[in-house]
Design a protein around this nucleic acid. Structure first.
Lengths: 131, 131
DNA sequence: TTTTCAGTTGACGTAAACGTTAATAAGTTG
DNA sequence: CAACTTATTAACGTTTACGTCAACTGAAAA
């Protein structure tokens, strides 16, 4: 059975403000149904929203996030459209793989730094002669 | 021997504008030396700048990038300072590991999507009966 | 029925990260 | 030396992603 959320329900659940939800609708990222004048969010809206928020955490802009969501939504009939989605998906995939490598580099550098500092700290704590 | 760059040299080299370099100086991310009134960027400025740009590509804000660069620059004498750097570094490391996992999730989803679309495409091209 | 409460639509405000323009100075080239 | 060229500071403009506030609308509770 379908769960429904009011705007503040969903906002509270995912720790954002109602304003954010209205804005995402304004830019076409979400399309909740209306019950009279009020918005009603279904489960698929929540899932979509969670994808948006993950994208935001990763530093993507909203248009870029919209692009990626479009990749999923598109259920194209035309072969050329399929090929297009395939191409755009591959490009994004490429970007993301690069981003992962960059992040792994940062992680490794931080890890190395950590080891160095921990070593220095141990020497200090032991009362090393070189100090 | 030390390489020097004028502001437009460095901007061109890393495909940004001089304005960006002046701005990064304004917020304390870079500190080029002065030759009279003009800025001169040394190799360490370039390296630092490349770290900044990588951070930007990864979606970090400039203050956050400044924090991370501080971790490297800090060469603390006090034990408490060392412990502080260690703590902050660990926190960042944690964030980054989460970000890597998020990105890997996105990558996997895109990869799966790719396979599905490629399959559909092949069926269409073969002139599948279900169409 | 009268608050009251959550929700609605504008509309303007804001912070970050620069872009753009103006006015000026300092080398460098013909 | 005049004319460029490249640099400088200062200041205002711009976009993104909302925050904030005002005025209004239903629905529900007292």
């Amino acid at each position: 059975m379908e769960r429904h959320y009011t705007i503040s329900d969903l906002a509270e659940l995912l720790d954002i403000t109602p304003r954010t939800l209205r804005y995402y609708e304004e830019v076409g990222l979400l399309t909740p149904i209306r019950q009279g004048t009020q918005r009603l969010y279904r489960d698929r809206d929540r899932v979509r929203l969670q994808l948006i928020l993950r994208g935001r955490r990763l530093g993507f802009g909203l248009p870029e996030i919209a692009d990626m969501l479009d990749l999923y939504d598109a259920d194209p009939t035309e072969i050329t459209q399929l090929q297009d989605v395939l191409q755009r998906g591959d490009k994004k995939l490429h970007d993301i793989e690069r981003q992962i490598r960059d992040l792994e580099a940062v992680r490794d550098e931080l890890t190395e730094l950590r080891t160095r500092i921990a070593k220095t700290l141990l020497q200090k704590l032991r009362g090393d002669p070189t100090e």
